[in-house]
């Protein structure tokens, strides 16, 4: 069995965090994110992870990159934001330079055995994959390592300039990021362990991989994001390349006193709601890194419209 990945040599244990640096060091966003080979996008459920994944994919492809956007779990949200009915295990071309793919469990297991563990084809693959299937549901880390293995395998294949992984929500992200360590603790020797080590080093290499956290300026999302930042900072599994706040309202440019002068009615109520939301949002925004923010999109109906509009907005940041 051969494990001669070039990326294995590039294991760097630099402190993979940017949070202590000011926003100035991070200008070039979103360019800096798109410079990675693998961009993992996560956040609390419902904050717009899939929308941001799709938007960055659209943007990178527009910049001439060959991009694969990959749904690590439930692909329906990502598919909708990419404007297609569904995503399958075979990369599908969505527009020039942009491809979409979903992880399908049985394919992922076979690919993991054959292409990542280099199990000889002479062995009974179906039974092996059946056995692994049971392990994936029972032993900690196996399902996660098979799922994490897919985007990294796509990166190492060298066919893409950028792989964007629409990752599981924050609640589950830790078990995916720490799967390599879990496996090395569980399995003393063998191909599974070696693949886990390869995966760990690819994730930890800041030139290759970055994690983008998406949040909204609300209590639950911000607190969960801050907890995740602290945890990932401590565990040093991957570079956090940015924290994007989504659905941020623009200030109105008028005061509550101005709005209060209006007679009771919709104009007054809408003005006060907007001011109140901006105030609440800004207090939550003040406790996360000052990365560029994506606006609340008024009146947008479909996920595909939302992703296309966010891509235009990101383009304007450059």
């Amino acid at each position: 069995m051969s494990h001669g990945s070039p990326l294995r040599l590039r294991l760097q244990r630099t402190r993979p965090t940017i949070l202590s640096e000011g926003p100035q060091e991070r200008c070039g966003y979103p360019e800096a994110m798109l410079e990675h080979r693998l961009l993992i996008v996560s956040g609390k459920g419902g904050v717009g992870k899939s929308a941001v994944s799709a938007a960055l994919g659209i943007l990178a492809a527009r910049r001439g990159k060959r991009v694969l956007v990959l749904a690590m779990i439930q692909p329906s949200g990502l598919a909708a934001h990419l404007g297609v009915d569904s995503l399958s295990y075979e990369p599908t071309r969505i527009r020039p330079g942009l491809f979409g793919v979903a992880i399908d469990r049985s394919h992922a297991l076979e690919e993991y055995l054959g292409l990542q563990l280099h199990v000889p084809r002479s062995l009974p693959m179906r039974q092996l994959s059946g056995a692994l299937n049971v392990l994936a549901d029972t032993a900690p880390g196996i399902r996660e390592i098979v799922t994490m293995g897919k985007p990294i395998f796509e990166v190492l294949r060298g066919e893409w300039d950028l792989v964007i992984a629409d990752a599981p929500p924050l609640g589950q992200l830790q078990s995916y990021l720490s799967a390599p360590q879990t496996i090395t603790g569980l399995v003393p020797t063998g191909a599974v362990r070696e693949q886990a080590a390869r995966l760990e080093s690819t994730l930890a290499d800041p030139a290759t991989s970055g994690l983008l956290l998406v949040t909204t300026p609300e209590e639950l999302a911000v607190l969960e994001t801050r907890e995740a930042i602290a945890q990932i900072d401590a565990d040093r599994q991957i570079l956090i390349t940015g924290v994007v706040a989504n659905r941020v309202l623009e200030p109105l440019g008028v005061t509550a006193h101005d709005v209060g002068a209006l007679p009771d009615g919709p104009a007054r109520a809408a003005g006060l709601l907007h001011l109140g939301l901006v105030e609440s949002q800004s207090s939550w925004l003040s406790s996360i890194p000052n990365d560029p923010r994506l606006p609340f999109l008024f009146g947008f109906h479909t996920p595909a419209e939302v992703a296309a509009r966010l891509a235009e907005i990101c383009e304007a940041f450059a």
């Binding site: 039974q127 056995a131 692994l132 003393p188 063998g190 191909a191 599974v192």
Partner: peptide, 9 residues
Amino acid sequence: ADAVLGGPL
């Protein structure tokens, strides 16, 4: 399977 996966899992 155990030989491949590495352990009496």
